[in-house]
Amino acid sequence: MKDIYQNNTSKKFVGVCLFFFVIYLCFLYLGIDFERFFSALGRFGSLIANRYYPVDLEYALDPGYLQSILNSVQMGYLGLVIGVIIASVLAYFAAANITPSKRIAYPIGKFLIIFSRSIHETIWTILFVTIVGFGMLAGVMALTMYCIGFFGKLFSEELENVNMKLVETIRSNGSNEFQVFAYGVWPQVKTAFTGILIYTWDVCFRASTIIGFFGAGGMGWYLKRNVLQLEYARVSAIIVSIIVLVVLSESLSAFMRNKIQKETQ
């Protein structure tokens, strides 16, 4: 913060030059045409205006497409439920302060959460599609892995921040691990659990709209079909409907989060 008030212009100038030189080298390395880069926004605008613009909104009301929206919601919902159940256990293992065994359970939980987080949901979809075939089952499995990574990370961090004094008190009374969790840890993280759950639902639903692109069911499959058929008006209708649905789901979850916060206060 101090540097901003100090006025060492020459140093700053050299820094900025070096910065742009490194970016220039990166562009050279990646083989990016500068003319193309600077005209990208114009091309993007003309592409939107020429191909995507007359949005074929009637297509979004097609019964088959509406059915696929329902399928996406179901897929996201099921993936969330299964994923959160597994992730809660893994997060319990992966929280350094309350883990049942530091030698075995902690590394396993931590590794599984990091691993399922590292692989993007679309790659999970492709893998599960090759294993169990096209359809929504693969999508549910991919979303499950996604939720394990997302929910597991946030929830295990929340578990690591619990007040250990209460936990120690209950443990020193001679309670077993389950009682420690149920009476010492759970009441402390209950609100955070619901909040993270709602947040995970948001992200999971957003992912479920797209994974159909790689062979799981739902809206993504319609997107893929229309992209391949070069039906851009329909593609833009699908994108618009995805935006509307995501905004709806986000405002719903914001409403629910507010309500829960009010109830707990």
């Binding site: 169990v132 075939g133 929504m136 089952l137």
Partner: peptide, 8 residues
Amino acid sequence: FIIVLDTD
């Protein structure tokens, strides 16, 4: 819907 009907 997903696991019983839609799965091959």
